[in-house]
Nucleic acid binder design. Structure first.
Lengths: 107, 107
DNA sequence: AGGTTATATTACCATACGGTTATATAATGT
DNA sequence: ACATTATATAACCGTATGGTAATATAACCT
């Protein structure tokens, strides 16, 4: 999770299946920890552990409804993944016309 | 690397920094193992180990130039990452007009 | 206050991962 | 055939990861 410099790597964070599941669940709507536990294969501490990692990565935020902690998706950091992917899209995209391909290859 | 079903998870494969480096290096052009070793912080066996993983994931192919093994990028599998990312783009993209946003939210 | 509900943290464990050194394999050249 | 070059595999190791059970913390309710 942490590299030598002590910085988190977003790629590793989304590499974990259960974490992607949580992210996907929160895309529908904000949910309490309990809801996430119900919809996962994990124990409550297991879910809480992943939520902590997601929180520290800035991928979720918390609001509170009495005892319940409601987790909200904050997808913005994922733009980092999107940016990395950018130069690879032309390898599979068939939507690019010849001119666009040409311009891409000029860089 | 392998989940319960014995299938590889592409997200985990690209989570590793050295592997992303290799992929990025191969985007420029096909390269021999030796070239990749020069341009990485890894030993030759270290590079070969990652190349095996990339090969088994279908992200690289090999051609041979006498003793040299030339690795070529095959980016197509990355479309899986791109697809996962798809529904999250609207969270940071400011290119979407109001109608498009509305349609997205209808689903 | 005492009990219940909801979540977070701690302590622990088994396993997987990434790295290295040493060795095997294979093609080239003399 | 033998040495050299290039790469792959094997064996091994320390550490990080993800999971759980047990416990702590906190808010609610009567």
């Amino acid at each position: 999770m942490l590299n030598q410099k002590g910085t988190t790597n977003l790629f590793e964070i989304i590499a974990e299946t259960n974490r992607r599941n949580i992210i996907d669940l929160l895309r529908t709507r904000p949910r309490s920890v309990g809801e996430l536990v119900e919809r996962s294969q994990l124990s409550q501490p297991g879910v809480s552990k992943h939520l902590r990692i997601l929180r520290e990565a800035g991928l979720v935020t918390i609001s509170k409804d009495s005892q319940k902690h409601i987790y909200h998706l904050r997808a913005e950091p994922l733009v980092e993944i999107d940016n990395w992917l950018e130069p690879y899209r032309r390898f599979w995209s068939n939507k690019l016309d010849a001119l666009e391909q040409f311009l891409d290859e000029e860089e």
